[in-house]
Structures are given as structure tokens and as C-alpha cells.
Design a protein around this nucleic acid. Structure first.
Lengths: 340, 340
DNA sequence: ATTAGCACTCGTTAACAAGGAGTGCTAACA
DNA sequence: TGTTAGCACTCCTTGTTAACGAGTGCTAAT
């Protein structure tokens, strides 16, 4: 449907606009040395592209900017992956050379790198906990009536909660109870814990332990709150230096959304793997309808367990960000799999 | 040095300016019904106050705003604590009624409440870990060459790190080692752990366990990184709606500072207890030289363990914030002591 | 000591003109 | 038929000017 030349012009215009953040006029396009036709011709073409909905004007006699449909087309059909300079590749690798003792640190660093290199906000959703399996349960008494319940998963993740001990329960009973829990629950995926507890364990405990009910309430509570997964940010404020956010009133709702963990989850958590791009209003949230979000997944043991995302203005350096996101999510996957 | 009337006018002016955020002129002051002299008189007094350095003008013929010295005087000598309405007291109590299973949640909530009620940014530094004592060490094997080392403190706080197991070490040796660590280290304050490890434990391990050196490096690393204490934020973006931060270029450095944990620590951690107020440049950081910071401490077992802080514009509702900070830090202390 | 009166300063707002960037359209051109 | 030069037109931006209002400092009268 689009002619070669229209494709070319659309690409040039989007590329230019991404760099300059200003409406692009026919004259400035015509000055490029790879363009061999006049501003007037370009005007005609741009007018057609606008009619088709790929471009917009900010006012009657302004230059053009890409519409959301324009970005979408650009991203779907004109995105030429970019090669990073050797220098940059070295820098990325260097950032990963440190050996990380904890997965958390590694993920934090990943978010940091990604935001630094894209100049956008990077978000990494921590590994989905629910799929991991129980490795060990332990209860350590702190005082007469408090203990900390510790749950270790097979990935080495540790969850803990302080629980109240009812007066009626004595030490040996607690020990027995923990033993029972370990016998029965090791290897069970976390998301099944609560059900299994209710279905099997109650009966068993009933046989062996007196007064276990109040105790169980505490434990159930502790086990069920294996909270929403961790969210790691990098360059939270990078987006503030983009010219489209010079107005503080555009910034406030955006930053507020970033603070709302549930919204971020809803926004980023995706069933599909591979790179996905949402442009402007394609994101369901009003607060980020002027932003684009690019996500991909990373994995441990070839299961997709988490999401890596970049949030920036619609006028985002798509080719560069896509390339970086790809490289960095793969680095993260590699590092996670080789070290943990 | 200051006459009654000058004190009164300074107070009125600061109060008014805190509300309106606009330079205060003699006429608007004279309109108050508790003022029985003319604008001209007020002008004379204000000119004197300005000469003494308590007030400033934004331009030659503008009204006055308080200088930092003016705020300082106001805070030191004119601060009349405010009574909160029954309604507000009820709301604060209500926010605390939920029973929190974890200290973390309680602290998070505290930061939230404080920011909501002050419309500023609230920061709570988590309990100082170093003073707490070791309750239990445990190592749980995850695989052939990885284990998670878990440290429980007497406050119920759990620290954990994944450590690599050298090939030479076998299971029973690890068990023995952990036993030794527990025997020797329980009750030791965390900040002493590393020293004790090096001074006592090395010798003991040397007797009982072969090839313990590489293992120890891992453990030392794990024990020594009882990282900087947690920082909890509430209303991170509240400050953005203040008129003095309409300009995004003032906002960026401020938000960036908020993200830097070490700077925040340096800023807030204070040896003194009780409410402390730092105004503008009294804070050492350039990025917050237009802000005031009010801090106080909270405690567990009558030891001061953490800091509660409010960051807002210099034009902050000092009386209200001071009152709220006092109430809320005490509530936090009470809750922590009764529940944990 | 207080205050009314007045000249003066400075920020804000509106109106207006000039310049520039860009467009759409028309007519000429290859 | 596709391309382009030329031109009128639109709209943003910038600068100028004028008017107004809020506020001050000073002087002189009370």
C-alpha cells in the first residue's frame, strides 16, 4: 500500500523526530544527502501519509510528528535492529563482570545498566516465586510467645515471618509440628502450599498435636502471604529529563503509577515471551498514555520467570532500546542460570 | 532584641507565607482583625526585620518572605505546637488499628500515614541492625555446591545469602561448622560478628574441620554484608505538588537524592534523639537546599534504633508536621514494643 | 510613635508587529 | 504524469509597548 518512497520518508521522519523531539518539516528532510527530491514533493508525500493516519501536525502549519499508528507501523515494519559499538558492548559486559552473590543484586544491577544505556526507566520484575518449590521450613523461637517462621525455596529464596505462639503450645510440640510440615511439604510448589496445608496437614496434626488450631492460623497466614513479586527499578527519574515531560503535571501521575506495585505488575506481566512493544494508549493506563513500554522475559532453567521492561516517551529510540533489551535480558538469563 | 510586635509580625508573616506560598505585603497583614495598626507601621517593622536578616524580598517592591534565618527563629522561638482535631486523631489511630504481622509492614504503614497527613515526603530508616544480637545461624543446602546461609537476630529479623560450597567440603563438615558457629556466636551483636569470626572461630575451625578456608571466605562475606539498613518511603512524590517545585529542573536533583540510599542515610541518621529540624542550606546537600528536613527517632526497648523523617519545602507547615511527627513516631515506638 | 499620602519599582498581562518555519495549492516543467 | 518553483496563508515565537496592580520607602502631618 505504501510506496517505497513513503516507507523511506516515514522512517526518516520517525528517526529524525526521535532525535530532535521537534516537528519535522519538508525542508529539513530535503536537506539530507540521501534525498534527491524537493521539499514540495516531500510535502505531497507527507500529506498523503498524514491522510493515511501515520502522521500528525501540532498545528495547521507545523511540521509533522508520528501518530501512534505511525509509531506502530514503524515498529512493526521499519525497525532495523542497530549494532552497538564495540565500545558499548564492552561497557555492558564490564558491568556484568562482578560476581554477584545474590540474584537480587544481579537483577538490581541489570535494571541499573538498562536504564543507564537507554536513558529511560528500567523495571525488572523479580522471578515468579509461586513456581518455585519448598525446600525447607524452619521455626526459630525468639521468645516465650514469638517465633520466626522461615521458608526456603529450591532457588535459595528465603521468606520469613514472625508469628505469635499461643500460650498452650509447648516447645516439643512446635518441633514435632515443623517436622511434620517438612515431611509433608518439601517439594511442593509455593502456590499449592495453602491448599495442601488445609487438605492434608490439618488431619495429620490433629492426630499428633494438641491445640494446634491457633498455631495453624498463624502459619497459614505466614505461608499464604508469599507476596507479590519484587520490583526492581533503574533510572526511575531518567524520564524526567525528556522534553515531553517538562510539564510537572504530566510527571506526577506517571511517577505515581511507578510507585504502585500492583499497577506495574498488571502493566508488565505478560504471558508471551519475546520482545513486546506497547505504544501510548495501547497501554491501558491513562497516566502512561504518552509513554511506550517495551518488555521481554528472562528465564531460569528455560522457564520464563520474570519480565524486563523499559518505559520511556513514545518518542523512544526503539531500535536501540530493542537491541539493548534483547542483549541485557539474555545476559541476565545467562548469569542467573550459570550462578544460581 | 525583638519587640513583642516584631515577634508577632514575624510569626504572622511566616504563618501566612506557609499557607499562601506568596510574598506577604503590609496591606494583607493589616487586614487581619487582630492587628490594630496601619500598613505603614507594618512596613516600618518589616523593613527592620528585613534589616536584621529575618525577611527577604523577591524584588525591590515585592512583599516579604522569610529568610532561612527567619525560619530558624520561627522554629526556635515561635513554634506553637498545634492541636490536631479529634477527627484527625481518630484517623491516625484508625490507620494503626490493623495488626501487623511484620515490623516491616508496620514501618511501611507509618511512612505512608506520615506522608498522607503532612503532604510531604516521609522517610523511615529501618531499625539499626548492628545492635541486634545473633539468635541463630543455619545453612540449608540447595544443591551440590550451593547453600543458603540464614541468620536470625533476636528481634526476629532474618538475613540470608546464597553461598557457594567448595567441592572439598562435605555435608557432615558443614553441619559441624554450623554447630560451632552457633555455639560460639549466639548472643553476639551483629557488628561484632566479623571480628569474632576472625579472632576466635578460625582457630576452632582449624582444629575440627579440613579445608575450611574457602568456606570461611564465603561465610565472612555473607556475615559482613549486613547491608545498610532498609529505607522506607511514603509519598515520594508529594513534594512535586508544592508550588516551589513547579520547575522540573528543581525536582530532578531532589528525586535523585531520594534514590541514593547512602545520601539519605547520611542526611537523616542522627546521634541525638528528639525532634530535629534542618532548614534549607543547613542540610549539607545542594540538591535539597530548598527543603527542610524534620527528623526524630523511634525506639525498641528504650534504645533509639531508627529515624523517622519528613522532607518538604522550607515553607513547611512546621507546627503541624512537628506535632504529627511526634505523635506518629511515638505510635510507632509503642506498636513496635508491644508487638515484637 | 503612628499614619496618610505619594512617588517609585517591579512583575504581570494584553495587544500588537515582525520574522520565521512550515503548509497547501497552482501552474509550469521534464 | 510525476516533480518542482512560487506564492499566499497559518501559526508559533519573539520583542516591544502600555497599562495596571501590588507593594515599598520616604516625608510630613498627626
Amino acid at each position: 500500500m505504501l510506496t517505497e518512497r513513503q516507507l523511506f520518508l516515514l522512517q526518516v521522519l520517525v528517526d529524525d523526530y526521535i532525535l530532535s523531539a521537534e516537528p519535522i518539516g519538508s525542508r529539513s528532510i530535503s536537506k539530507r544527502e540521501d534525498i534527491h527530491f524537493s521539499p514540495a514533493t516531500i510535502r505531497n508525500e507527507l500529506a498523503d501519509l498524514e491522510e493515511m493516519g501515520f502522521l500528525e501536525k501540532t498545528h495547521l502549519s507545523s511540521g509533522r510528528i508520528p501518530s501512534e499508528k505511525g509509531y506502530r507501523f514503524y515498529v512493526d515494519h521499519l525497525l532495523s535492529p542497530i549494532l552497538l559499538s564495540d565500545d558499548e558492548m564492552r561497557n555492558i559486559r564490564k558491568a556484568y563482570t562482578e560476581r554477584y552473590y545474590e540474584a537480587e543484586k544481579l537483577i538490581e544491577t541489570t535494571a541499573q545498566i538498562l536504564s543507564d544505556f537507554t536513558n529511560c526507566t528500567a523495571i525488572v520484575l523479580g522471578p515468579e516465586l509461586l513456581d518455585t518449590k519448598l525446600k525447607h521450613i524452619q521455626m526459630i523461637r525468639l521468645s516465650e510467645n514469638r517465633a520466626v517462621l522461615i521458608i526456603v525455596t529450591d532457588t535459595g529464596h528465603v521468606e520469613n515471618r514472625v508469628v505469635a505462639l499461643p500460650d498452650e503450645v509447648n516447645g516439643s510440640e512446635i518441633e514435632r509440628m515443623v517436622n511434620i510440615l517438612n515431611e509433608r511439604l518439601i517439594g511442593v510448589p509455593l502456590y499449592q502450599l495453602k491448599v495442601r496445608l488445609q487438605q492434608e496437614i490439618h488431619a495429620v496434626l490433629n492426630e499428633h498435636i494438641h491445640h494446634y488450631e491457633r498455631m495453624m492460623i498463624e502459619i497459614e497466614h505466614a505461608l499464604s502471604v508469599n507476596g507479590p513479586d519484587q520490583i526492581y527499578y533503574g533510572g526511575k527519574n531518567n524520564i524526567l529529563s525528556q522534553p515531553e515531560f517538562r510539564d510537572i503535571n504530566k510527571v506526577i501521575p506517571l511517577l505515581n503509577v511507578l510507585e504502585k506495585k500492583d499497577l506495574i505488575h498488571g502493566l508488565l506481566r505478560s504471558p508471551k515471551s519475546g520482545i513486546q512493544i506497547k505504544i501510548g494508549k495501547e497501554n491501558k493506563l491513562v497516566a502512561i498514555e504518552d509513554c511506550s513500554v517495551i518488555t521481554t522475559t528472562y528465564s531460569v532453567d528455560s522457564e520464563h520467570v520474570g519480565t524486563v521492561a523499559v518505559i520511556g516517551p513514545k518518542r523512544m529510540a526503539y531500535p536501540r532500546v530493542v537491541t539493548l533489551l534483547d542483549i541485557i535480558s539474555k545476559s541476565l538469563t545467562n548469569n542467573l542460570n550459570s550462578n544460581y
